[in-house]
Design a protein around this nucleic acid. Sequence first.
DNA 1: TATCTTCTTTAGAATTATTCTAAAAAATGT
DNA 2: ACATTTTTTAGAATAATTCTAAAGAAGATA
Lengths: 143, 143
Amino acid sequence: MGKATRENSSPAPFAAEKLRTAGLRPTRQRMELAAHLFCGDDRHVTAESLHDEVARAGIKVSLATVYNTLHQFTAAGLLRQVVVDAVRGYFDTNTGDHQHFFLEDEGTLIDIPGEAIQVAGVPAAPAGMAVDRVDVVVRVKRT
Amino acid sequence: MGKATRENSSPAPFAAEKLRTAGLRPTRQRMELAAHLFCGDDRHVTAESLHDEVARAGIKVSLATVYNTLHQFTAAGLLRQVVVDAVRGYFDTNTGDHQHFFLEDEGTLIDIPGEAIQVAGVPAAPAGMAVDRVDVVVRVKRT
DNA sequence: TATCTTCTTTAGAATTATTCTAAAAAATGT
DNA sequence: ACATTTTTTAGAATAATTCTAAAGAAGATA
């Protein structure tokens, strides 16, 4: 059955390709983080939450590397940053057109599909400026 | 002409009333900050920017007091916080229904009247949650 | 006005999220 | 394997904000 062991089995074969395409060397840390980020459904993480998560999975990656990686992935278009909270920075694996609910009590984000929501009447951007993105945050609180 | 001097002339008579109504003692610092915030047009400030501004006007208020006051004013409904930037916190003197342009290059906010812009298709809030506010941020960049 | 009580201010320490630094480790090319 | 370029990382550094405890005002009262 070959020599696949816990040590040499790659956690997510697709990750290497994804990283290469993005112009990033497929290092162990980046592979592990990519595996956690891009394997299942879309998700929202903070540097800290992702770091905790991989740590609990027994993977050793420094927090600095998590920050670096999140930013590199964002620059490569693999992630998108969401600004909803003054204290924490969130990263979203869904880079398509969509918006968010933000549960203020828990600090949780929930995607709202882009087709669902429409923003009308945005005035022309100030002179010399172009619209980069329109972000909608629906802040909700426990009833 | 009475005995109005630089020392006893109140910088903004309306401020005292405004503060009392909000349940806040009209202290010198709060009066000065209110005068700067609520005298002219609507504006957007950060703790640091407001602190610098009053300092340049020769007024001595500690940064901690600026933070306290901005939060107290916000709790009293005199200000509203705007989350657009991961590093800095902004406060808006316009507490009515409106949205914002955010000039990412300069870190500047510009109001968009609430009547101008409409958001349609917001899904129902998650169970047990109620919509607190819908924020729209139109991020613009230099062309 | 003198006094008491309560609320504010403040300097500076503390906290928190994030970035920086410089050196060790890993990846890639030859 | 060797040389070169990237990465990773621990820990220091930064920056915004909050906390602390003590001194200073405000308001109420006698």
